[in-house]
Amino acid sequence: MSGALLLLADGRFPAGGHAHSGGVEVAVRAGLVKDADSLAAFLTGRLHTTGLTAAGLAAAAADGFDPTGLDEAADARTPSPALRATSRRLGRQLLRAARACWPDPVLDGLAAAHPGGAHQSVVLGLAARAAGLAPAEAALAAAHESVNGPATACTRLLGLDPYQVVAVLARLAPELDTVADAATRAAAEAVRRQDAWPLPAASAPLLDLFAERHSAWKVRLFAS
């Protein structure tokens, strides 16, 4: 059953992620991310904030929590309008790929209910469910996605040694497990209580700031 997880979490899964930097393009231009160490610090912060939040939403969706409620919870957890738009756009792109891979009436229903796109984390959870994956696997895929995209973007933006970058990701792997565990437990509690409150809502002020700045740039390499 992990075969589907590898497919879903693969950076080459055609869901649009390759064109997004997760804020790292701004951090690079601001001089805040400039080498493997500062990239590691960036990714650690991202993983434990928006990564954790996305993992919780994905796990809850995979655990059968009502997607409409999760979409509202995701909106409230995303104060930046630029990030809300990005998340919905990526959600729509992911849904396109997921429906091709794992045809499922639930995915069709989600597409119909959110023509402008549902939040990426919610789609990820439902795609995982359609693929027969467990909530913990959905959480892990979301946590992975939260750091893998920015790391790849950073390789392109800074021309970092790809072996250094992949080593940064390898050192983060145990923390991915920790975050996915916490997210999965929170999701189970949310499902048990039928309430999104237990889901993580972790945020990072600079990621919100970066996203708004990025959307105002005239010239940029990444879509976000």
């Binding site: 804020g23 951090a27 601001a30 805040l32 991310v33 500062s38 610090a41 960036f42 990714l43 650690t44 912060g45 991202r46 993983l47 434990h48 904030t49 509202e72 919870a73 909106d75 409230a76 957890r77 104060p79 923390e175 999104a196 409150w197 993580p200 809502a201 972790a202 945020s203 990072a204 002020p205 600079l206 990621l207």
Partner: peptide, 30 residues
Amino acid sequence: TVRQAGRLILDQQSDLGPGAPGWDGPAVLA
């Protein structure tokens, strides 16, 4: 956490300072 007319419009946690992973890094407070 903020609700307006029953709708959740803002829900955010922050964890800053020693013990919070990545808090002084370039994604959070730099």
